[in-house]
Design a protein around this nucleic acid. Structure first.
Lengths: 155, 155
DNA sequence: ATGACTGCAAAATATTTGCATATTC
DNA sequence: GAATATGCAAATATTTTGCAGTCAT
């Protein structure tokens, strides 16, 4: 979707173009999602941060709006943790890595080879979405752990 | 894990080998999971079907046992639907397809190319698990739809 | 007898639904 | 003004927790 964080006017036009009424709440949520690109917030995080700014905002509304954005393919839903749904405004083809140490979800800018197969078919099934969810220990946690071991050995 | 559905004696030995006490509930749940290989049941399904056979079975126990099986890598947890966790006793490397029409989860026996990269590192992160979740319309639903359109055109 | 496992009830968390009110074009 | 969106409260669904009782060695 829109690469550069746009102003409200541009976002309004964007939503209208998608056949979505650009209400105040929708604009604010979309703006927030674009600003927080790469942070993969939950409904709760979005609600907690936004209702301070635009009260009264209802969690139901956040659920509704995110759901409609997912249907219109403006954002995508990520279920890597298994305990709650996270949302991502980066809808260019990419995949996700969940660090089991720090809990971060990291974007992996790798094209998924599944997508390459003949006209979106995999073993005869028509593929419309591909989610690569990898889990393990992220680069930063590995480095931190290495440093700790190094320090311990020096003492 | 065990390819051929074993008898209770073999399962008992298997669990003992993994350092897990082979209680009645654990054996029955493992037996059920192997029998229902490829059906990816939820906690609820497992509970509903098993408590008829082995009452009193508690849902808490089902949660406990499945969790311990996942930790010991006897089964794996699948979060493709986003609304509940499903379990899979097939732990050979494979991926999953969710049909948005019929709701089935289908095993895709494809190796994930992510796994091929240098010693389990992807972009510097250490990868311990890889889940490929694809969504779309399955072969059977595509065929059914095709037939319906064909019939409609004949009339 | 010790330690681990099970099961109930209650709590916690995440999400959905029904309906009255408010907003947008 | 008609259609749609929002927000509250309550309902539902999923999973976790605390604890008492039970089982196996």
């Amino acid at each position: 979707m829109i690469k550069i964080i746009s102003n409200m006017g541009e976002l309004k036009k964007f939503l209208l173009g998608k056949g979505i009424k650009p209400t105040y709440q929708r604009l604010e949520i979309l703006y927030y999602m674009l600003k927080k690109m790469n942070s993969h917030p939950t409904v709760d995080t979005i609600y907690e941060e936004l209702y301070l700014k635009i009260p009264p905002l209802s969690k139901t509304t956040v659920y509704n709006i995110l759901k409609s954005f997912v249907e219109k393919k403006i954002i995508s839903a990520i279920t890597i943790t298994g305990s709650e749904v996270r949302y991502d405004a980066n809808i260019t083809p990419h995949h996700h890595f969940l660090c089991t140490k720090c809990g971060r979800i990291i974007d992996l800018d790798l094209k998924c080879p599944f997508e390459m197969q003949d006209k979106n078919r995999v073993l005869g099934h028509r593929v419309e979405e591909v989610h690569g969810y990898l889990k393990g220990i992220c680069k930063e946690c590995l480095k931190r752990r290495k440093n700790e071991i190094f320090k311990r050995n020096k003492n």
